[in-house]
Nucleic acid binder design. Sequence first.
DNA 1: TTGCGCTGAGAACGTTCGTTCTCTACTGTA
DNA 2: TACAGTAGAGAACGAACGTTCTCAGCGCAA
Lengths: 187, 187
Amino acid sequence: MIDDETARDRVVRTADELFYTRGVQAVGMDAVRTAAGVPLKRIYTLFASKDELIVAVLRHRMSIWDAGLAGATERATTARERILAIFDFLDAWFREPDFRGCGFVNAFGELGAESHGVTEAVREQKATFQEYVARLVEEAGAPAHVAPQIAILAEGAQTTAAISGTPEAARQARAAAETLLDASGAN
Amino acid sequence: MIDDETARDRVVRTADELFYTRGVQAVGMDAVRTAAGVPLKRIYTLFASKDELIVAVLRHRMSIWDAGLAGATERATTARERILAIFDFLDAWFREPDFRGCGFVNAFGELGAESHGVTEAVREQKATFQEYVARLVEEAGAPAHVAPQIAILAEGAQTTAAISGTPEAARQARAAAETLLDASGAN
DNA sequence: TTGCGCTGAGAACGTTCGTTCTCTACTGTA
DNA sequence: TACAGTAGAGAACGAACGTTCTCAGCGCAA
């Protein structure tokens, strides 16, 4: 049989693409089956239900996002530059042709009311990001209250860029973050 | 027959509550029919399709939001205070027990990829808000580039509050807005 | 009163969904 | 070669969806 791990990965990766592009509920399990080339029976031995697949997809997306963010920020030499690199990372993402907002926010809006697993995964992703920002803010020598402000800017930029269909929110949020850091007396 | 206007209003108002609470796709037309007490046949003479009802619901929500925002901000005497009152308005909203994020953002994430009407309505709502903020920023004597920054803060606060389940993002975003206004040399 | 038109209530339609079942065909072992 | 176990491909299932149709009953002009 096809290797368990690659089959699972292929299902998750394919479902992630489909869910993000078209919305979770708009994509049936049949579409996942066809696109991934994995029989339904097998999908249902790997995941007990569609909800479980959705959660697995969100966790996969989480690791991709974390790795991408880390890669984009680690090149900067100072903590302040690493914070601002977050917004450059967003800027590049917003310019991708199939950018459609934050997949976690979309999933939460669509399913948060009905799926506890989705709510938990999304909450975890946002908490991880906020902690990452908090660490950078501390390293930059800025007061702790600046961290959630910068996280809120990043969040708002994603929504604004998605709905407007333009990437300029990244630049605007970056400038605001600079102002907040400067006014706080960071290094 | 029941008056056309009240029937239409009841359908829209009821559908708005259901859609916001449980998500749009999770609510069937049967549920709208039952909750509103209006026969399906009549609903389909008032709205050609569910998508048309959704757009009508979004436009209704838009007018509610605009009125609420105007009411919350007009009490303030200076333009700067009106800007900050936006975040007090958000704070009060976030504390409502059934707050579940911005209904427009949720609808966009759920249906934006598949419904042009939804995308258009959501885009219109966000553009209106941004223009309102821009007007206040101008009245406050702050440079124009501060306006999108403050709008992004408001946007991010809504998402953050919804996912975290706590209202504190309003306070944090308000403080950030104050810093941005102060640093820009507004009155 | 008679008949016409439209109403409300909900049954019914075709489709699609998530999930399960069937059946053929292959793999590995003796 | 024979056989047990399992994999793949997709048909099939019950439920729920958006939408349409049926039909009894009411209001109103003559």
